[in-house]
Each structure stands twice: as structure tokens, then as C-alpha cells.
């Protein structure tokens, strides 16, 4: 199989302005991935499937990942101009502006996003995997990504599942409904900031936090009934 860099070059030759970036994977598995621009994803996907040298005709796995807002503290070396008193000639003191390298801790918040991950293989040429990723703009209101179901039917149920559990809205999906949770369910349970409801069924485990919350919930309910 071609390396991810070669595949990236092939995509950029075929789909102008595709905006593909390579995401390296530091683990021993060395399954590197390509991040796609959502605007061109459908064209890139069709190219990957139909190109005779790549022929990624088999979409194995589709899944979502939730990346929370992350505060990143990094140490940066900054050159600052500092005024220093220097011994001048004949015992005089001179003030001089000197460049000095100082280490500074800077904090910035990396905005979170929802990510869809696709694992592609080729049945015809028996190679793979190629990992594709797409990110939404944020986690709250701009959560649309293009659906790849028109290119690979395999994404149909799996994208529905990602929509159900992560809340990524796949535009162009023919039948985007909840799949595992019931239709009236409101939240997205696989998100990292999902809060479990406290009206769980009674679990007799003596020390479980779930039990405590269930008991509180029950006493609240009883209080409101009285």
C-alpha cells in the first residue's frame, strides 16, 4: 500500500483544494490517518473508492470521538528586551538594552470538537487500513459533517449510531434517526461530559455512588409527592 503521504499527494492531484492533512500516530501500531476538510470529503471519498491504484472499496469501521475543550499549558522561550545596568568605562554606570531569553508558561484553550473516524480497506487489492478523520467546528451548534453513506453503504447504520451516541449530524444521510437509544431520548450518551440520570434501578451494591444518587432521587420524589 502507498504511504499516507503518497495517498495525500494523490488526493490533492485529483481533487484540487482538498485540504488534506496527515495526522501521525505515535503508537507502535503506526496507523497514521488523514484529516479531511468536510467540504471536500465526499469527492475525496469517491476518489479513494474509484481510483484503480487505491481502490478502497471496503469501509470497515465508522466511529465518533469526543474531544473536550482542552487547556494546554506550554512553556515557550521568549526573547524579551531587558534594560540592564552595565559597568561602563572609567567606573561609570551605563544603562543598556539587552535581549534575554526567558521561559514563559502560556495557556490557551484548544476548542473541543466531535470527530468522525473511518477505517478503509481494499478487498480488491487486499490492503489497508487507511484512516480518515473529519472534525466538526465545535461541540455545540456546528456539528454537521457530510455523510459518506452515498459512497459506502457500510456507513449507513454506523453513522446513525454516531449520530445517536455523539450527536454528529451527517448531512446527506438517507435515514438519520436514533438507532440504539429510543426516539424520545434527548442527550448524547457517549459524549465525555454526559451526566448519567440519577433514577437508576436499585443496585444493592452497598458502596456504589449510583445507589446514593438513586436513594436521593427517590427521597426527592417522595418528598414532592407528599
Amino acid at each position: 500500500m502507498k504511504t499516507v503521504e503518497e495517498i495525500k499527494a494523490a488526493i490533492e492531484a485529483a481533487v484540487p483544494g482538498a485540504g488534506v492533512t496527515v495526522v501521525l500516530n505515535p503508537s507502535p501500531s503506526a496507523q497514521h490517518s488523514l484529516r479531511l476538510e468536510p467540504a471536500h470529503a465526499l469527492a475525496v471519498a469517491a476518489f479513494l473508492r474509484d481510483d484503480p491504484e487505491l481502490a478502497f472499496d471496503y469501509l470497515s469501521n465508522v466511529t465518533g470521538v469526543d474531544w473536550l475543550d482542552k487547556e494546554i499549558a506550554e512553556k515557550v522561550k521568549v526573547t524579551r528586551q531587558v534594560t540592564k545596568t552595565v559597568d561602563g568605562p572609567e567606573g561609570t554606570k551605563l544603562e543598556q538594552v539587552v535581549d534575554e531569553i526567558v521561559e514563559e508558561t502560556r495557556k490557551h484553550v484548544e476548542p473541543g470538537s466531535l470527530e468522525a473516524v473511518y477505517h478503509l480497506y481494499s478487498v480488491a487489492l487486499r490492503h489497508g487500513p487507511l484512516v480518515l478523520r473529519m472534525r466538526t467546528v465545535n461541540r455545540t451548534d456546528k456539528v454537521e459533517l457530510p455523510s459518506l453513506t452515498p459512497v459506502w453503504r457500510a456507513a449507513e447504520l454506523q453513522e446513525r449510531e454516531v449520530f445517536d451516541l455523539y450527536g454528529i449530524v451527517f448531512t446527506g444521510h438517507p435515514d438519520l434517526r436514533r438507532i440504539l437509544m429510543w426516539d424520545e431520548f434527548k442527550d448524547y450518551p457517549m459524549r465525555k461530559d454526559y451526566v448519567e440520570p440519577d433514577d437508576y434501578e436499585y443496585e444493592p451494591t452497598a458502596h456504589d455512588a449510583v445507589l446514593k444518587r438513586a436513594q436521593e432521587h427517590r427521597s426527592r420524589e417522595q418528598g414532592s409527592r407528599d
Binding site: 500516530n25 505515535p26 503508537s27 507502535p28 501500531s29 496507523q31 470497515s60 484512516v131
Partner: peptide
């Protein structure tokens, strides 16, 4: 260590993968 991996085998029912 930080990173990711996708492993799959031929299970009796089909391709079973873990990501």
C-alpha cells in the same frame, strides 16, 4: 503510550474489530 490502534480478526460472525 498515547496513540491509537485498530485491530480486527475473522470472528465466526464476520470481521470483529476493536478501535
Amino acid at each position: 503510550k498515547p496513540g491509537e490502534a485498530y485491530g480486527r480478526i475473522e470472528a465466526p460472525k464476520g470481521e470483529l474489530g476493536f478501535y
